[in-house]
Design a protein around this nucleic acid. Structure first.
Lengths: 131, 131
DNA sequence: TGGCATTTACGAACAACTTCGTACATTTGA
DNA sequence: TCAAATGTACGAAGTTGTTCGTAAATGCCA
């Protein structure tokens, strides 16, 4: 019974979501410090984007204290899924397999990772066709 | 010795690239008909975007006749690779494996496709780590 | 309590993208 | 040949996203 929303964050919003996903509920200051570590951006810019995200309901905030605490309002896995799905549709003609090949082929994946994927696939195929 | 360009088409541009990739060199009219099949958009809009793409060198055109013929100036595989790479970095924390899991888990891939991926992985792992 | 630092709010400016109206050029066929 | 159809060029307007300056509110501490 989850609310199904269509998540389409902008670049900047996604950066912030990533921070919130990894750090959990955070102040603007926290997020901005994290952001500023790799990017030259003003504090009020970060604030503004987070306010916009609040508007779009990408985040929620606790304003009970005067220092507001923000947290992601979207599920990480669900968001990842939607973005992958979108890429599959728009770039790989609907074929997940083609995307997987690309990802594995180009990315120089480690042997360990490949093994883990194989294991995963074995489980999938052994338990028969789903659907 | 290839020219390394960073490809970042917009949504609309990507739609057009997909058409050019599948149909090969095409006129604006061709592209627009294709586009209009699924999307309500004016002819001059399509034309304009294609002109902008020419500007950005996403496409080239043959204007020797008065009816210009456009074709993609970017390699499909390379573009796909860059977009996958970007997704891995921005959403999956650099891990191709995580993306693959997502793609396979969510997407209800067919048994046949899974088998093909396994075969591919077998070849990869058997020939040992590259690089 | 007064003043400095921190935080939030707001709006303006700019840039990128999308859309389309209009004008102009070319082709075609009656 | 000339009018309709087809095609290209251009610019303007609307939308969205990004950035930041400035102001106002609040917190802190000497």
């Amino acid at each position: 019974m989850k609310k199904e929303q269509n998540i389409k964050p902008t670049e900047s919003e996604l950066e912030i979501l990533n921070i919130l996903w990894s750090k959990g509920p955070s102040t603007v200051k926290d997020v901005h410090e994290q952001l500023a570590a790799t990017k030259n951006v003003g504090y009020t810019t970060t604030l503004k984007i987070m306010q916009i995200m609040l508007d779009k309901q990408l985040v929620t905030r606790d304003a009970s204290s005067k220092i507001h605490i923000y947290q992601s309002a979207v599920d990480k896995t669900q968001a990842q899924g939607q973005m992958v799905q979108r890429l599959i549709e728009t770039v790989f003609n609907g074929s997940a397999m083609q995307l997987v090949m690309q990802a594995l082929g180009n990315h120089n994946t480690s042997a360990t990772e490949l093994a883990m994927i194989q294991e995963y696939l074995d489980k999938q195929t052994k338990q028969g066709k789903k659907k």
